[in-house]
Amino acid sequence: EPLWIRPDAPSRCTWQLGRPASESPHHHTAPAKSPKILPDILKKIGDTPMVRINKIGKKFGLKCELLAKCEFFNAGGSVKDRISLRMIEDAERDGTLKPGDTIIEPTSGNTGIGLALAAAVRGYRCIIVMPEKMSSEKVDVLRALGAEIVRTPTNARFDSPESHVGVAWRLKNEIPNSHILDQYRNASNPLAHYDTTADEILQQCDGKLDMLVASVGTGGTITGIARKLKEKCPGCRIIGVDPEGSILAEPEELNQTEQTTYEVEGIGYDFIPTVLDRTVVDKWFKSNDEEAFTFARMLIAQEGLLCGGSAGSTVAVAVKAAQELQEGQRCVVILPDSVRNYMTKFLSDRWMLQKGFLKEEDLTEKKPWWWHLRVQELGLSAPLTVLPTITCGHTIEILREKGFDQAPVVDEAGVILGMVTLGNMLSSLLAGKVQPSDQVGKVIYKQFKQIRLTDTLGRLSHILEMDHFALVVHEQIQYHSTGKSSQRQMVFGVVTAIDLLNFVAAQERDQK
């Protein structure tokens, strides 16, 4: 057995438009009618409502009807409940999964919650491996369901041993009777949507819809739904939504950006999952974080739909894509998950301010006199920076000697690579993860907040409520011999709460 199987392995699926269902090699399930009293909570997966979006479509000038398939009504709160249950049931049916076995899954959280929910009911041990950027709410729900959680670096490539995929496979090879159901490759993922989600949409719309818009992560949702719609409703256009920084969209030119990270969760990847059939997507749109969270908040405030950030991405694209539809036509959007997962993220004004998705003037509360002053007023001194090749031991000596707790790590040209902190280095040394002679590049981390000289002290204040420091950066445009230009970030300084307090105190003292 291989040590790991690539999540982007070539698909062996034989589905073709027009091929009889009787030739399918898979076990198919028909939607079942729910009894009045459910035998367990797993029976509350599927049969989610279709809700008309009344205000947002009109606000953006849509002539067509805009409908939302509300997947956050599933038992675990997301569309991923469907595939989690289906993968477990299919693994039980073919004898792969037996009582007492362990389920391991690399996930952005929602599939993990679905699997942990099913594992709690069915009696399996469950280990979820997820990147650090995923919300604390997801972690809390997983723990409450009895799952064990392993976190991995957000910026690790999918084929790196440190990625959530790599760590999951390492655990599988170490733990007896453990299984990775593997949402990236498992046919049960798109089949769950082909058999149930798509049929529900067709039934709820009486077979009449002209466009379907869905955000894409593993691709199982859009693949399964689109294949069924292509068979039953061939005139329906399928629109895929991919965040900026991901590479799922086609044509490839759409993916060209210097951005590699994004805040919206559960969609987009740096590889093409095996289950994603991009041939059934008629057109791709890219979405960005700001519009995703703005539209998610709009869905909550104006439509009462308590959905997550990827739902915002989907609707932001839908109001663009559906401009081509006329009166009497219908566009369906998939709202994948609930706001429950993001209470401390985009639902929080403070978080939105820190990330730059909300401006101070958007909030009406009274601010102190210094709130709208610029960061450049602080008069920061030149920063202490270190090269990635310097040793951890030497870096600790320098920081202690100069009285700093942290320093930016830059390359020879001064471009920011990340940050090192005294606390992080000492804990890594004590844990045996690094040696004093190791290069400081081994303990770089990139989960820090950046701020510009033109940003306000109010925004800085919000950042420092949650973080010990902020890195002050400025952009530099560099022209190359080819005539092309590129933008790079340079370090201007490091600012802490002490710097802000000293500035405010000094100004008030001078005024007296």
Rank of each mutant, 00 (worst) to 15 (best):
I238F: 10
I239L: 04
G240H: 02
G240A: 14
V241I: 07
D242F: 05
P243Y: 06
I247F: 02
L248N: 02
E252Y: 10
E253D: 12
T257M: 10
Q259R: 14
Q259L: 14
T260L: 02
Y262V: 06
V264D: 04
V264H: 02
E265F: 02
E265I: 02
G268Q: 04
D270H: 07
D270N: 04
D277A: 02
D277Y: 02
R278D: 02
T279M: 11
D282M: 02
D282R: 14
K283N: 11
K286C: 04
N288A: 11
D289P: 05
F293C: 06
T294K: 02
T294G: 15
F295H: 02
R297A: 08
L299W: 02
E303Y: 06
E303F: 04
E303R: 02
G304S: 02
L305S: 02
L306W: 02
C307Y: 07
G308N: 02
A311C: 08
S313W: 02
T314E: 02
K320L: 10
A321N: 02
E324F: 13
G328S: 11
Q329V: 05
L335G: 02
L335T: 02
L335Y: 07
P336C: 08
P336R: 13
P336W: 02
D337W: 06
R340I: 02
Y342F: 08
K345H: 04
F346H: 02
L347K: 15
D349C: 02
M352C: 06
M352A: 04
L353A: 10
L353H: 02
L353G: 06
L353Y: 14
Q354Y: 02
K355R: 11
K355L: 09
K355P: 02
G356V: 04
F357D: 02
D362Y: 14
D362A: 14
L363W: 15
L363C: 14
K366A: 12
K367R: 12
K367F: 13
K367E: 11
H372E: 14
H372L: 13
L373S: 02
L373Q: 02
R374L: 15
R374S: 10
V375L: 11
E377H: 06
T385S: 08
T385W: 02
V386L: 12
L387H: 05
T391R: 06
T391D: 02
T391L: 09
C392N: 06
T395L: 09
L399Y: 14
E401Y: 11
E401M: 07
K402F: 09
K402L: 11
F404K: 06
F404C: 06
Q406I: 11
A407P: 08
V409R: 02
V409D: 04
V410H: 11
V410I: 14
D411T: 13
E412W: 09
E412G: 11
A413H: 02
G414I: 11
V415A: 13
L417V: 12
L417T: 15
G418S: 11
M419L: 12
M419K: 12
V420Y: 12
V420P: 05
T421H: 13
T421N: 02
G423E: 11
G423V: 04
G423W: 14
L426D: 05
S427A: 09
S428E: 14
L430D: 06
K433V: 10
K433Y: 09
Q435M: 12
S437K: 15
D438S: 12
V440T: 05
V440I: 12
G441Y: 14
K442V: 12
V443Y: 13
V443E: 15
V443M: 14
I444L: 10
Y445Q: 02
Q447Y: 09
Q447W: 10
F448C: 13
F448Y: 12
K449S: 10
R452T: 04
T454F: 10
D455A: 12
R459N: 10
R459F: 11
S461K: 02
H462V: 13
E465G: 13
E465F: 04
M466R: 08
H468P: 13
H468N: 13
V472E: 12
Q476V: 08
I477Y: 15
Q478C: 12
T482K: 05
T482C: 10
G483D: 14
S485E: 14
Q487V: 11
Q487N: 13
R488G: 13
Q489Y: 11
Q489A: 11
V491C: 14
V491L: 13
F492H: 15
L500M: 11
A505Y: 08
A505R: 05
A505V: 14
Q507L: 08
E508V: 07
R509T: 14
D510A: 02
D510S: 10
